[in-house]
Structures are given as structure tokens and as C-alpha cells.
Design a protein around this nucleic acid. Structure first.
Lengths: 203, 203, 203, 203
DNA sequence: CATGAATGAGAGTTCATTCAT
DNA sequence: GATGAATGAACTCTCATTCAT
């Protein structure tokens, strides 16, 4: 019977619907202003129904976060094809910026939104995040080893670069750059990437 | 009438008291735990009294935001005493980082939080923010003019630097750096400032 | 100004209204089936208003319990006028039975209802209850000392008597004696008191 | 048809499983924590399945109540082996106390709880309860007839004794004796049984 | 017979806000 | 100007129960 299969699929689809609705609402109004009721209403279910798919509000948040980290990690996977560490570094920045600007809801959730503490409590929960961070760290290490980057401390260099990338996108996502019109954003981001790479990379 | 004046002054003082109380509570207990009632209790007024001085909760947010920008601008004023642009730039970064880490909830309100935003609706409201930004822009310009910094585009350079500073502090404020223990934060921040200045400034 | 006084009085009256409503509902439906909403509706207030007078549901329960113990203790105060311990003992039983049957709501709350744990957690909270219990214990002690009662253990004797009294009234209050018509209850209670005193007291 | 019979038997068995699960949960986790869902989970059925065997939650309560009375009656059956009425009376008390303390939630359901009560609406439903009560009444009658007990009214004597037994256990079950540590309960109960029998029985 | 999915009703509680005084 | 009292609207979450399959 394909019946069981179909049910399985439907169940999965409902879960996805909930996540999509939550994602949308979280972005528009922030985690704490989104209510379970509104998520339910959004998908035309009763509030209680949501609890059949997620233990509580935090669980929805966590699921979305996981989704986000997996997606980001997936985007980073193309980097393995690049050989030169300096090119790799630039591509890594590019990917990060693109991911953030194209998935603003998810990015906000992953890196900006005040999280339910639980989400970061256990170190295991951070594994996904760590993986994506290590991609950058490894590239930085390679750059240093192969003389593309002079830095007394690889970790500081890595954190600085991440901070810069995060700073750019979070300023835009949270609308703190009214001096830059929306239509110029892409251009500015390109400029920053160029400038940064020039400054950071030697030769 | 001196009486009218006195009343005016008293009114102003009460406003300031409310703001001071709100700021203190935000810092000590975090944003979501501050209610109108707690603000009122803090200053030993009734909740209703607060509404005589502020239209609603958002109005308090906005006033604090304004205060934050003024305070940051005030901090930046010591920069005029520094002559060499490169030293000025480093000091400017230092000031920004310190301000953010010492007034985390205020910084959050100014640059991260989504909540009120009303303050950003009219361009005039942005003047304060612009002023503080221009301090950085002017220093960057000086650096370029005097050869301390090579950058094809002064605005891009400025935005990049701001992004880096903002990135660092907002990662900490929103607790996205579990790999760095709280007691090492200051150290890391110093490292980043050193590294950044070395990379960005030529000679 | 009598205004402040009047307000004080009104506030007190509202508290009493809430307690009265809660008492009535608790009896009819049991603690766990009574909702704050229903209490509020009963007195034609909003649910939130109840919280201005009582911290939470448990606080209402505790206040009623306190009320009950105070009232019972007050009823017992007439016993001091009686000299002979055997007469005192009988009177004490009488008072207990009457109190229970005339204040069934309160009695239920004090001795039967599943209590919010908190109500009995701290030993201080039990002081009131202990006081009323000691009245019986003291009388029993006197009876033994003066030869009206032979019992190897005064505490066991006291607990037994209390158990009997409590047993009788709680069977009635929780309607477990369908074999005894309501109109015969008083009579049966009298019979039990007589019988018990005869059996327990020597000579 | 043997098939119909088998089905009947299976249906009965499932009913019993549900009751057993419910009883176990009541005892282990207390009344208010038992939900239809938990009962269903316990027997590895779906919540909906339970409704095929019981109209609603109350029906389960009632069935358990019935079971409780049957079980108590069964416990009392050993009494027929005892000849001397005074020994019989003491044994009857012992059995009652033990049953109550070993099946506290069941006893609660039978004699204290307000919840279902449906079971007491029709007089027929009381037959079971009456049977267990009559066991005690008959023993009391024998005691009186054979001179072990002097009582002007056998019914009053019986009710008094029941009240005492019920009083003791219900004080413990509903936690109203904080002056007696849990580990002393058994001892106190023994003391009460001794004391009571000494006082009530002549010779 | 049994279930997965869903829901309506409602629980206790909190908060920004108002208004008569 | 200030307040005590009050409220409406929400909040998250739970539970007994139902119904299409």
C-alpha cells in the first residue's frame, strides 16, 4: 500500500509548512513577537495542531536553525573545488554574503535573533554551527601557511573576517544603513568584498 | 513666570529619571524582562504616571535610542585631541568597541533590535546616527589623504570598518560565539583591533 | 479625609468577595476544577483583576485555609470556661463536628481537598493548624492525668479521636453515606458523639 | 459461534488491560497526572482506542471504583475463617487499614474523591459498597450479641468504627498529618488499632 | 478493531494601557 | 500631576474527545 507512504509524506509536508510559516513570521516580527497561534492561523490549523509536530516554540526555532546551518554548509561545499587558498577565501566570503542576503529570515534566526537559550546550551547543538565556522578557519589556516596572509594569530584573523562579513549583512538585515539605498546594496557588498580581500591578502 | 519654568524643568527631570531607570533595567535584567510596571516601580511612581511623560513603551525605546547616539557621540569627542589620523582611527575603533560592550542593551537597541524603529522612519531622526557615522568617515578620509590608508573608495572603506566593529560586538551581544569564553572576550577584542589596524593601515 | 479609609475598606471588601466566591466554587467543584476565570466572572471582575488581590490561585487557597483555622480556633475558645476534662472533651468533639457541618466548604478545604503542596510546605504555615490540634491534645492529657481516660499513649489517643471526628464529617461532606438520609445526619452524629464518649471515657 | 465468544473475551481482556494501566498510573503518579493519552500509551494503544472500550474518562473512574469495592470485599473474605467476633473485628479493621494504605489512590477514588460520582447516583451502584459495609456491620452485631461490645445502637457503633478507620487513612492519604513522619505511619496505625480495640471491646 | 490527525475549549498568567478620582 | 483599580487582549500550552480512514 502506498497509503502509509503517502501519510508519511503528508506528515512531512505539514512539518515543512509549519517551518515555512514560522520562518516568515519570525523574520517579519522577531521571535518573541511570533505566537504559536499566529503560526497555526497562518497554515489554517488549530494552535493545538502545531504541538503535534513540534514540542514547543523553541523546537520550531531549533529546527529552523538546523535547517539554516545545513543549508549554509551545503553552499560551502563547492569550495572544495577551488585550489588556491586566496581564491578560496574570497569565494567563501562571497558565499557567506550571498547566503545571508538571499535567506535573510534564516540568517537572522541563526545569527541575530535572540535565541531561546536552550538552542545553544548543549555543545552538541553547536556542532552544525562549528562545522561551518571551521570551513572558514581551515581556509584562513591554508592562506597563512601558504603565505597569502600574514597574521600573528590564525584564530583572531578568522574571527575578524567572520565579524566583518556578519557585520555587513546584519546591518542590512536589521536596516541600520539608511544611507545606502536598497538598490545599491549589492554593489556596496561587492565593493566591501574587494576591498577586504585586497587589504587582508598579501600579494 | 518662573513657576512655569520650574514646572518645565521638573517635568524634564522626571523624564530623565524614567529613562535612567529604563536603561538601568535593560542593562541589568535584559530587554524582555522590563515592563512598564517595573520602570514605574523603580522610580517609585505608579505605572500610569509614566504615561504622562511618554506616549507609550515605544516612545521610551526611541528616547533611549536617541540618548544612546548622543552618548556615543560624546565618547567620540575625545578624538579631536588626537592628531595623527592612524592613531585617531585606532582610538575610534577602541571607543566604539568599549561603548558597545559597556552598554550592551543600549547598543542592542541602537543597532540590532527590531522593536521600535520608529526612530528611523523620518530622516531627521537619523541625524544623530549620521553624526556618529561621520566621525568615522572623516577619520578615514584623513587617513586616505595623508597616505595612511590606501582605498579606492573612502565610503566602502568606512563601511567595511564599521561592519567589522559592529560584527564583533553584535556576535558577542547576541551570544553567537560560544567558542570564546566570556573571560577571554576582552582579549579577543584587543587582538581583533590590533590585527585590523595592522591590515588596514599601511605602514 | 475619610477617602483613604473608604478606599481601604473597599479594597478589603473586594478581597473578601473573591474569597467568598472562591470558597463557594471550591466546595462545589473542587480546587482543581475551579478556574481563576470563573472566580472572576462570579464577582463580575476581569480575570486579571483577581491577581491584584492574590498572587495566584494557591494564595487564594491559603487565605481561605487560614480563615478556616482561625474560625475553628475561635470556636474552640469557649472551652476554657469548662472545668471538668470529660465535659471539656465532649464539648470539644461537639464543636468540631458542628464547625465541620456548618462550614462544609471551609472544612473540605482545610482537611480534605487536595492542597497545592505549598500550603503545607513550610512548618510555619502549619502553626494555625497545630494550635487547634493542641487544644484537643491538651484536653486528652488532662483527661488522662485526672483518671477520666486510660490510654497508654496520649498522642495515639488524641489522633484516634481526631480521626473519628474527621472520619464522620468527611464521610458526610464527600457523600459516602447514602444509607443515612440527610435529615437523619444530625441525629446520627449525636449518637456517635454519645457512643464515643461512653466508650472512651472511664466512669 | 465460538468466534463471537472469542471476540467477547478479547474485548473483555482489553478492558481489563485499560483498567490495570489506569490503576497503575493512578498509584504511581497520582491522580491529576493521568491523562487518557498516558493510559493509552501505557497499553500501547492509540488514545482513540480507549474510547472503544469506555465512553469517557468518568467511565474509567467508575469501573475502577467498582473494582476497588470488589477487591476490598475479596480481602474481607478471609474473615470467615475467624471464629471469635472480637478477633474478627480487629482483623476487619486491620484489613481495611491495609487495603487503604496499600491502594491509596484507589481508596481515594472510592471514598474521598469528588470526581466521577456517577457510580453513586443509582442505588444499584451502591450495592457493592453496601456489601463491604455489611461485613463490618455483621461483625459488630455478633460482638454485641456475644457480649464483646456494649452498644445501645449497633448501627451507630458500626458507623463510628468505620468513621475512625476512614478518618485515619484519609488524614494520611490527603497529607494532613505533618506531625507524623512518613516512616512512623505504620507504627501509629498499629497503635490506633490497638487502642481502639481496647477501648471498644469489653473484657 | 484501531489509528493518526486534528480540534475546541480552556487552563493560569502577564502586560500595556486607561480612566475616574 | 499622580494614582489605584481595573481591564482586554494576549500569551504558551494541555486535554478529553472526535472522525475520516
Amino acid at each position: 500500500m502506498g497509503s502509509a507512504e503517502r501519510k508519511e509524506r503528508e506528515k512531512h509536508e505539514t512539518r515543512e509548512m509549519i517551518l515555512a510559516a514560522a520562518k516568515k513570521l519570525f523574520l517579519n516580527e522577531g521571535f518573541e513577537h511570533v505566537t504559536m497561534r499566529r503560526i497555526a492561523t497562518e497554515i489554517e490549523y488549530s494552535p493545538a495542531a502545531v504541538y503535534l509536530y513540534f514540542k514547543d516554540k523553541d523546537a520550531i526555532y531549533c529546527a529552523l536553525q538546523e535547517q539554516g546551518f545545513k543549508e549554509l554548509y551545503r553552499c560551502q561545499s563547492v569550495l572544495t573545488a577551488i585550489k588556491r587558498p586566496d581564491e578560496k577565501l574570497r569565494a567563501c566570503g562571497r558565499i557567506y554574503l550571498d547566503f545571508a542576503m538571499e535567506n535573510q529570515e534564516l540568517y537572522d534566526l541563526m545569527f541575530i535573533m535572540r535565541a531561546p537559550l536552550m538552542a545553544f546550551e548543549s555543545p552538541e547543538d553547536w556542532n552544525l554551527g562549528r562545522d561551518t565556522y571551521e570551513v572558514l578557519q581551515n581556509i584562513i589556516n591554508e592562506c597563512i601557511e601558504q603565505g597569502y596572509l600574514k597574521a600573528p594569530n590564525a584564530q583572531i584573523a578568522c574571527f575578524s573576517l567572520w565579524a566583518l562579513l556578519h557585520g555587513v549583512v546584519s546591518i542590512f538585515i536589521r536596516d541600520r544603513a539608511p544611507m545606502i539605498a536598497k538598490e545599491h546594496r549589492a554593489q556596496v557588498i561587492n565593493g566591501i568584498l574587494d576591498f577586504t580581500m585586497t587589504e587582508f591578502l598579501d600579494k
